[in-house]
Design a binder for these strands. Structure first.
Length: 279
DNA sequence: CAAGAATCCTGTCAGC
DNA sequence: TGCTGACAGGATTCTT
């Protein structure tokens, strides 16, 4: 689940535990997640100092002394559990554990194993198969009305599906696409090619605002997702449409023709929207 | 070529 | 209480 705001929150939570620290011990409990883990992962992590962090879309990159970056994707159910090396709270589905020289313990837990972990040379990060071709960072200045318009131009797919495509814009997932489209008053079923221009001018600022507000709130807590420090994010209380099927839309309570928030399925995934205010 | 379905995997929840 | 089926934040790969 974790979308951009949750990944950003996780990364910020990992920082104090790992940045500047030496990985004294690494445990790798299975050979693969979504993809095979890199050969010798535990050995290549052991002894390395953590130099810094970076997020790209839904990926976390941890820069290691020696020139490698640890690339982490949380998939649907991945989370990072922070504890101390002494209290080895053995968690189910904990596939990778890092222990620092000063006694911190970070576990990667992922029941569904849709997540992925890889090593890439730091100076070649952008060329990694999973990162190459990713679209602009939505909170950066190069994600603009013009850039979004260009990438949607001529696309016959619904805007909902287009925004989930990480090549169009990086980091959006099912929840935040629904939320941003609601805020922009755009129907998720509208074809992407009809967005460039005035609609893109409404959509881009709403994407940025939705994500920024969610990060400020510490992300959204879903059923099986908790921030690294164990605290719950609280943006889920700010969802205006996601998970609110048949509730009245806040924009048109009791208006004639308003039948509440509707749930439909697009490309096999739930979409929530207000048919009256999203056109 | 592009759009939608199937797929990977496990856990949870609603309904009976 | 226990069983069954639907569904879940993602993203690639296979079919139409």
């Amino acid at each position: 689940m974790p979308e951009l705001p949750e990944v950003e929150t996780v990364m910020r939570g990992l920082r104090p535990a790992l940045e500047g620290k030496v990985i004294a011990r690494a445990l790798v409990h299975r050979p693969d997640l979504r993809f095979p883990l890199p050969p010798g992962l535990a050995r290549r992590l052991t002894g390395a100092r953590v130099l810094g962090f970076r997020r790209r879309g839904k990926y976390i990159l941890i820069w290691l002394e020696g020139g490698d970056s640890l690339l982490i994707h949380l998939g649907m159910s991945g989370r990072m559990v922070i504890g101390s090396a002494g209290s080895n709270a053995e968690t189910a589905h904990e596939h990778i554990v890092l222990e620092t020289a000063d006694g911190a313990r970070v576990g990667f837990v992922d029941p569904r194993r849709f997540g992925s972990v890889d090593l890439v040379r730091t100076d070649a990060e952008e060329r990694h198969k999973l990162l190459a071709g990713m679209g602009p960072e939505p909170l950066e200045d190069d994600f603009t009305v013009a850039s979004l318009s260009t990438s949607l131009d001529g696309k016959k797919t619904p805007i909902k599906a287009a925004l989930l495509d990480q090549r169009v814009v990086a980091g959006l997932g099912n929840i935040y696409v629904c939320e941003a489209l609601f805020r922009a008053g755009i129907s998720p079923q509208r074809l992407a090619k009809t967005i460039p221009g005035a609609r893109a001018a409404r959509l881009v600022p709403e994407i940025k605002a939705t994500l920024a507000e969610a990060i400020a709130a510490g992300g959204s807590s879903l059923r099986d997702y908790v921030q690294p420090d164990g605290e719950l994010g609280y943006f889920q209380h700010a969802w205006k449409v996601y998970g609110r099927e048949s509730e009245p839309c806040e924009r048109c309570p009791g208006m004639p023709g308003c039948s509440g928030i509707k749930r439909i399925v697009q490309s096999g995934r739930s979409t929530f929207y207000c048919p009256r205010t999203q056109r």
